[in-house]
Design a protein around this nucleic acid. Sequence first.
DNA 1: AACCGAAGCAACCGCCCACGA
DNA 2: ATCGTGGGCGGTTGCTTCGGT
Length: 323
Amino acid sequence: MGRSPCCDGKAGVIVKKGPWTPEEDKLLVDYIQEKGQGSWRRLPKLAGLNRCGKSCRLRWTNYLRPDIKRGRFTDDEEKLIIHLHSLLGNKWSSIATKLPGRTDNEIKNYWNTHLRKKLLGMGIDPVTHRPRTDLSLLAGLPGLLAAAGNFGGSGEATGGWDMSALKLHVDAARFQLLQGLVCALTTAAAPSPAPGMNNLTALLAVGNGGQHGGFDQNMLLQQCQWDDMNDLPALTSSAPTSSMFDGISTGDGLSSTELRGHGGATGRNLIVDPMVAGDQECNNNGCSGGGVVLCEETPASSPYFEGLESLNLMDGGWKDLLE
DNA sequence: AACCGAAGCAACCGCCCACGA
DNA sequence: ATCGTGGGCGGTTGCTTCGGT
């Protein structure tokens, strides 16, 4: 059962659309302050506005309401939005109830223009809040993680990577990811690790601690706690971060069964495979799949790695991205 | 200074739900 | 139980501003 659009107006009456003028704003504010909100459908006529009621309601709730907080979102607000979105999804009005003075429309816009890109840049899927699994973003990881084997604080861990050249040849999201990884690799020996470094060092330590030829899941999980996003690095910072590993190791639903070690004894050639975890490990605890597997060697039958091979990006071949 | 593409954001659109007659 | 209405919501559009060339 449909319903007639509220903004059609009566026959022959064309209601105004588009940006509100200061005069219209004043009419609306004056009326509501004097009479209260009441019926939005009747309000335009009573207030002397040639607008539909819906338009009046939106203008009031999103812009004219006296308790609206304008200006930039604070870091705390930003983190809260991300956290609430991971729990509620696109329930903007529900999210807005937790941020006094912010409207659902404002939060929605901020999400779409800022936070969504921010999460993408961190390698996190903004819909699922899990690590991204698209090949274009993850394609360079095998080579980079393999290069982690060179890590030893010698200062040459970047292997001569030319980041400025890299920036010219890869998309922004991938560059940010690679930048974070390089930073992590080159600063891991610093006395005070940057945010997210614990995760990388844990990863390396676990990967290299191959006495048993596998990962210590407990150690990995213990060191990779996201701690309620308190350590979430700002991507706008001039200092690159290893935020990718924050994403991988987030406590947002990843269980110990989803972080699973595989084969190999060398501890080198660490590989992130988004394709393996889902069906096997995740089904055990009822999660919906899409988890992350940290491998030491290339699994033979993963569609992810088959895809990488087809792109010629395996075994450090990410450098082929450079022309 | 002019142009152009990207980014940001206010506002609109259309669907859905709750509620009362 | 059905229908009409009002209000709310999420998605999308398009105008404005900004930044780079």
